[in-house]
Computed example of a mutant assay.
Amino acid sequence: MKGWVYTIIGGLCLIVLSLWGTNRNLSKENDRLQGNNDALMEEVVTYMDIADRSAASVQMLELKKCELEKNYQDICQRAKDLGLQVKRLQAASKTETQTKVEIQTIVRDSIVYKDGILDSLKRIEWRDPWVQVEGTLHKDSLDLNVSSVDTLYQFIHRVPHKFWFIKWGTKAIRQEISSSNPHTKIICTEYIELKKKK
Rank of each mutant, 00 (worst) to 15 (best):
S110L: 08
I111Q: 13
I111E: 13
Y113C: 06
Y113H: 14
K114G: 01
D115Y: 11
D115R: 09
G116R: 02
G116S: 04
G116L: 00
I117F: 10
I117Q: 15
L118K: 12
L118Y: 15
L118N: 15
D119W: 07
S120D: 11
L121D: 02
L121K: 13
K122H: 10
K122V: 04
R123W: 07
I124T: 07
I124K: 04
I124S: 01
I124A: 06
E125Y: 14
E125N: 14
W126E: 03
W126F: 12
R127Y: 10
R127V: 02
R127S: 15
R127E: 13
D128M: 00
P129C: 00
P129I: 01
P129D: 05
P129S: 06
W130G: 01
W130Y: 15
W130L: 00
W130R: 00
V131P: 01
V131W: 01
V131N: 14
V131H: 05
V131Y: 04
V133H: 03
T136G: 02
T136M: 05
L137Y: 08
H138K: 10
H138A: 08
K139H: 12
K139G: 15
D140G: 08
N145C: 03
N145H: 07
V146W: 01
V146S: 01
S147H: 09
S147T: 14
S148A: 10
V149T: 10
V149N: 09
D150A: 01
T151W: 01
T151E: 09
T151A: 06
L152N: 02
L152T: 02
Y153H: 11
Q154V: 12
I156D: 05
I156P: 06
R158C: 08
R158M: 05
P160H: 00
P160V: 02
P160F: 03
P160C: 05
H161L: 08
K162V: 11
K162N: 11
F163L: 12
W164Q: 14
W164L: 15
W164C: 08
F165Y: 09
F165I: 11
F165V: 09
I166S: 08
K167W: 02
W168H: 00
W168Y: 07
W168K: 04
G169F: 05
G169C: 02
G169R: 01
T170S: 06
T170Q: 06
T170M: 01
K171M: 07
K171R: 11
K171G: 01
K171A: 09
I173Q: 11
R174L: 07
R174F: 09
R174I: 08
Q175H: 08
E176W: 03
E176D: 13
E176I: 13
I177M: 09
S178G: 12
S178C: 13
S179I: 00
S179M: 04
S180Y: 02
S180Q: 10
S180F: 01
